[in-house]
């Protein structure tokens, strides 16, 4: 089986601090990591490879040259190959432009049975790129995948919803987006680390994918973030004291009446 895993390098939000004066993220000195859900997507691919060693895993990412480190990490976990789409022309792409770029890269790779992506990236939180790639490639998609089983060219997928699950059968080729409940991503292995840097990473620019400025990059992006801010913290709640349920209820009622809410 041939699997493509879409990955993104993101700042480690556990390490991000917020500037108390400006309310913006302090990115300086923050380490970059593979996006968490993407690591789950890669792990799902690696599990398939564990069971069937002939499986070939190719990672695809769009980003600056520094994304190389994240791809090496993926190779050290056990992926076979990596493609980095990197070009000034694609900088500032929103989800629509990004999925144009990634789907073009996947078309160029051509031969695949399954595409796995993370549900969403921790820096943008849109959860749009995976589904858009499926649309642009004309593939069936299942999002929020918590479990999957492969039988021949058929997948049985457990899709997590807010209030329950859907069990979905889907035929290959298709695209799945992974959530963290799907698995626990493995560590890089030590031999994997030392072989990761012996492999070549394929780097494609916009020209290699015949991408033009009307479908990728900042200017082509239909959406635009014009302001980001930290929501004001909610005030502290008030605990109502009382020894019996009746006392608690009357305490609550008098609070609500005082605020003219009842």
């Amino acid at each position: 089986m041939k699997i493509i895993v879409c990955v993104k390098q993101v700042p480690d939000t556990n390490e991000v601090k917020i500037d108390p004066k400006t309310g913006t993220l302090i990115r300086e000195g923050v380490p970059s990591i593979m996006n968490n859900d993407d690591a789950n997507a890669l792990e799902a691919a690696l599990k398939i490879k564990d069971a069937e060693p002939s499986t070939h895993i190719t990672m695809v990412t769009m980003g600056p040259p520094q994304a190389d480190v994240m791809l090496r990490e993926g190779l050290a976990m056990g992926a076979d190959e990596a493609v980095l789409v990197s070009d000034r022309l694609v900088a500032g792409s929103d989800t629509w432009a990004t999925s144009n770029c990634i789907s073009a890269a996947i078309k160029k790779i051509g031969d695949y049975d399954l595409i796995l992506a993370g549900r969403q990236a921790i820096d943008g939180d849109t959860a749009q790129v995976g589904p858009q790639i499926a649309e642009k490639l004309g593939l069936p998609q299942v999002t929020y995948v918590e479990d999957l089983e492969i039988e021949g060219d058929k997948l049985t997928v457990k899709r997590a919803l807010e209030d329950g699950y859907e069990m979905i059968e889907v035929k290959l080729p298709c695209l799945l987006t992974a959530i963290k409940e799907l698995n626990e991503p493995r560590y890089m292995s030590v031999p994997g680390i030392f072989s990761a840097y012996k492999k070549d990473i394929t780097v494609w620019g916009a020209a290699d994918l015949e991408l033009s400025a009307d479908i990728v990059g900042l200017d082509a992006s239909p959406t635009n973030v014009y302001r980001s801010f930290t929501p004001e913290p909610k005030g502290k709640g008030k605990m109502i004291d009382g020894d019996t349920p009746a006392e608690l209820v009357s305490g609550l009622l008098s609070e609500l009446k005082a605020k003219h809410l009842v």
Binding site: V190, P191, I193, F194
Partner: peptide
């Protein structure tokens, strides 16, 4: 053992991790 942490500075031909002494 499984991750190769006990075989770092030995060549892969002997099933080492292929790493070096600084690693």
């Amino acid at each position: 053992k499984k991750l190769g942490l006990l075989s770092i500075p030995f060549p892969t031909e002997w099933h080492g991790a292929g790493g070096d002494n600084v690693s």
